[in-house]
């Protein structure tokens, strides 16, 4: 850090879009870029460790209750999961290409590729929503009764207490629910004979759906955040804010998006591909 002379006047925004403005506390663009990139990598590490809690939860349950997963995965649509995997991988490609375009200073491809990436994110979320809706319809969402209660007028009528933290709905819904579980498992080639078996399956399903919704829900949240920042750099790209020496933001968002993809690459077999 040669501070003997004044640092070169930092090019401010406007005029030169090829090089990033140099913040006052850095000496060179390289130093600034490397700092940002290292910072992003360290942040990605925190993300890995964040998800490690979920994977640990999964691993402990899978080791001790393998039947939970065998029963539960019958209720997921493997083709949808596989399709979503392909969509995310494709979006990763377009993101990687977008970073390349930014590095090469090609504005039009950059805008196009970012838009495609964003679109892929939307498709992913769309499929996810369809899957979630189906689960909601069959009352497979953990805490569904409590969520319904929260959004209903009952919450404020002063009489009704919140439903217990139970998975099974009350009354008529329960009969339907039992019927659905029974039928679905029969469809998957498993005949449920006794009430005890059915109870066991329902308990398993409840554990599995807890894991499924928490894992995919948190992943989906990351997808949404990723789409938010992609939208932000898309706006920047349209305004011509990136250039061969000014692509840090695209690069970092790309890293984030790839990590989101990477996590899904594990979630897919762990949740959908079970025997």
């Amino acid at each position: 850090m040669t501070q003997s002379q004044e640092p070169p006047p930092a090019p401010r925004d406007g005029g030169n879009h090829d090089a990033a403005p140099l913040a006052h506390h850095f000496d060179s663009l390289k130093q600034q870029y490397d700092s940002a990139k290292l910072g992003m990598w360290v942040f990605l590490i925190t993300e890995v460790l964040f998800f490690s809690g979920l994977f640990c939860w999964y691993a402990v349950f899978r080791a001790n209750h393998p039947d939970v997963f065998v029963d539960g995965h019958h209720f997921l649509e493997t083709p949808l999961g596989a399709f979503n995997t392909a969509v995310l991988i494709f979006s990763s490609l377009t993101m990687a290409l977008a970073v390349r375009s930014a590095q090469l200073g090609r504005r039009a491809p950059l805008i196009g590729l970012l838009s495609v990436t964003l679109l892929c994110g939307l498709v992913f979320l769309g499929v996810k929503t369809a899957e979630y809706r189906q689960k909601w319809h069959h009352r497979l969402v953990p805490g569904q009764a409590r969520i319904e209660y929260f959004f209903s007028a009952k919450r404020t009528d002063g009489v009704s207490a919140p439903p217990a933290k139970e998975f099974l709905p009350e009354g008529e819904g329960q009969a339907q629910y039992r019927q659905y579980v029974r039928q679905h498992l029969a469809h998957a080639g498993e005949e449920i004979l006794t009430e005890e078996q059915l109870q066991g399956r329902i308990a398993n399903l409840r554990s599995f759906m807890g894991i499924y919704f928490t894992l995919t829900g948190l992943h989906a949240l990351h997808v949404i955040i990723g789409m938010g920042v992609i939208f932000w750099i898309l706006v920047g790209a349209i305004r011509g804010r990136f250039g061969p020496r000014r692509f840090t933001a695209v690069d970092l968002v790309g890293l984030y998006w790839h990590l989101v993809d990477l996590i899904w690459i594990y979630l897919f077999p762990l949740l959908y591909l079970i025997h």
């Binding site: 925190t46 993300e47 890995v48 460790l49 964040f50 998800f51 490690s52 809690g53 979920l54 939860w57 953990p142 805490g143 409590r146 969520i147 217990a164 933290k165 139970e166 998975f167 409840r206 554990s207 807890g210 919704f213 928490t214 948190l218």
Partner: peptide, 20 residues
């Protein structure tokens, strides 16, 4: 981050009744 996920799971369990 592990604390963050732990606390999040605790909150989810408390609010929605997911068995963790």
């Amino acid at each position: 981050p592990v604390l963050a996920i732990t606390l999040l799971l605790l909150a989810v369990e408390r609010v929605l009744g997911i068995g963790i």
